[in-house]
Structure formats: C-alpha cells, structure tokens
Design a protein around this nucleic acid. Structure first.
Lengths: 158, 158
DNA sequence: TAAAAAAATGCATAATTTTGCAAATTAAAT
DNA sequence: ATTTAATTTGCAAAATTATGCATTTTTTTA
C-alpha cells in the first residue's frame, strides 16, 4: 500500500533529522504529518526498518538508522576501468585508491553508471571518495562493482 | 571498583561474540561467569557502554556495540608539514584547511603515515577531507596529528 | 582515620516496547 | 466480479527496559 511506504519514508526522515527518544514521541510527530496509526504498528515499522535504539548523552536514548540491504537487479553493463588499486570502507563511504592520476577518470566512469547506490564521487589524484546513498551498505557497493567493473576482485577490498 | 570494570568488559565481550536479545539473557550469561547483579544494574551498564538494541532477522532483536576503540601504539615519527592552517570535525570526518596550493602535498604526507586511523584523504587546493576509519574519533585523530605533526596545536582545532 | 562526597546498586515500579490474535484491508487468482 | 490468499493493523496484554529513591560501598578530603 502507498500509505505504508510513505509512512516508512517519513519515519526514516524523522529519525535522521531529529533525536527521538520514544515511539510515542515519534508517533505524535507522524500524526502531525497526517499519518494515523498506533504505537504497535510503529513498533513493527521500526523493526522492519531495522531502526536501533541507542543510549545518548543528552536525550537518554534515541533512535537511529542502521544499515539496510536492498538493491537493483539490473546487472552487467561493463565498464572499462583501469588503474584501480583497492577499496576501503569507512564512515559508510568507500575510499577507492587508484594509480596516480587515474582517480578522476575512474570517478567519471563511476558517475556514469548512474547507479542508485552511488550518490556521488569526489576524486583527487589517486583517491576517490564514493558517497553511497543512505541505506546502501558495503556489500551492496561491492556487488555493484563486481558486476559493473571487469577485473574487480574481492582481494582488493579491505 | 574492580568488579564493575571487569563486568563492563565481560558485557562488551559477550555482546560482540553472541547474539543476545534481552537483558535477562545477558544477565544469566554474566551469572554463569560469576557476576552477581540485577537487571537494573545491567540496564545502567548498557546505557553507560552505549550499547544499542537493533532488530535482527534471526533473533528478533539483538544488542550491539556502537562506537569505537582506540589506538596509538607507535609514537613520534615526525612529519615535516608546512602550510597547515586549521582543522574541523564534522560528520565523523575531518576537514583540514591549508595555505592555497598546499593541500595535496600535505594529503600525500598524511597518506604516507600509513596510520590505522586514516582510511584515506581527498585533497582540493586548500582543503583536505580526511576520512577516519570507523570507530576512530576526533580525539584519536587529534592525538595522531599531535604526535606526528610538528607544530600541530590544539588552537588550530575547531 | 574520621567525616564528607561521590558512585554504584537493589528494590519496586513506572515507562516503553513487543506480540498473539482476530479483524480489516489489499492483492491475486479463478 | 467473487473468492482466496496475503498483508497490514488495532487491541489488549505480556515482555522488556528504565528509573526514583533509599541504602551500601568506594573514593576524597581534611
């Protein structure tokens, strides 16, 4: 149903933007946005969204998004990439190392994949910062690269 | 007290090694290890440790550690850096300002520290984005820079 | 080392979250 | 268009977690 989906989106949005410490609190925020539901449903939504509750120094406890999993089944479209060295994951982002001078061309190619997973890239001389969309995890990105990038091997993933 | 500390350690250990879904469950595990306490105390311990509870596909809900560990075994190896201006922290990352044109050389030097704390850097003309590894916090990075970068002062940290 | 301050803990209970079950709504199949 | 299967939801109650307060234990201070 459409209602449920937009509600789930709204929940994610609220959780990232506000520090919410209870389901009742979140519930009233949702109601202000026009959603009507019970706390029980919200509990199930949070479970579905894999939202975690963690201690917070100022608010006591707050909800926060954790990692997700999902992705597009569009496979193989080949991407001629040379100069790739290795890739690291940190801060929910990927740091790709390339041969000196190769960063921008590879970044350009990555951008042109127009893949959902990648929100954007920034290239230096031999390093590319890949910013994945919210909810996209390491595995999603590895999967993407594996299918789109000839010669990409797990051995190069740190 | 010593008891409390070893208990906190034990809790962290158990949480990383097992998938625990309730405080009662964790409590009985702790009792098997010789700790005696009530659920109330455990609740406070988890809060102190900033342990989050998140939905899990197999166990329903599980506890998990959030932030960090620290590090810094190797000290002082000096790094001749000039052109450094200031550093800011945001989004779990560091944004370093340099004199115009100095960014890439400093970034290069930082890369060559091959320090665990830094996953990678991206340099523009007078700005460097430093991406710390997961778990590495501001203090860790400041410590690293203080020990490796002559002339690095707290005054330059925003 | 006695006194004072701070920290930790248990108890009981409040607050919050999860869930079984039945009803309602939506999607699929005939 | 009906019937059937699947999904979603509310309700009420169970399960789980957090916390105020008094007490004990530990640490500091004089």
């Amino acid at each position: 149903m459409k209602e449920r989906n937009s509600r789930l989106m709204a929940i994610r949005r609220l959780i990232t933007r506000e520090n919410i410490s209870s389901q009742e609190e979140l519930l009233s925020m949702l109601e202000k946005q026009g959603f009507s539901m019970t706390q029980a449903t919200l509990s199930r939504d949070l479970k579905y969204l894999r939202v975690a509750k963690m201690p917070d120094s100022e608010k006591g406890y707050i909800y926060m998004l954790t990692e997700r999993q999902l992705n597009d089944p569009s496979e193989n479209s080949e991407l001629p990439i040379t100069g790739f060295v290795s890739i690291d994951f940190a801060r929910g982002m990927a740091v790709m190392k390339t041969l000196p001078g190769h960063a921008s061309s590879i970044a350009y190619a990555l951008d042109n994949l127009n893949s959902y997973e990648i929100a954007g890239t920034i290239a230096g001389d031999d390093t590319i910062l890949i910013i994945p969309r919210d909810g996209v995890v390491k595995r999603d990105l590895v999967h993407l690269l594996k299918t789109k990038m000839p010669g990409f091997s797990n051995d190069l993933v740190n």
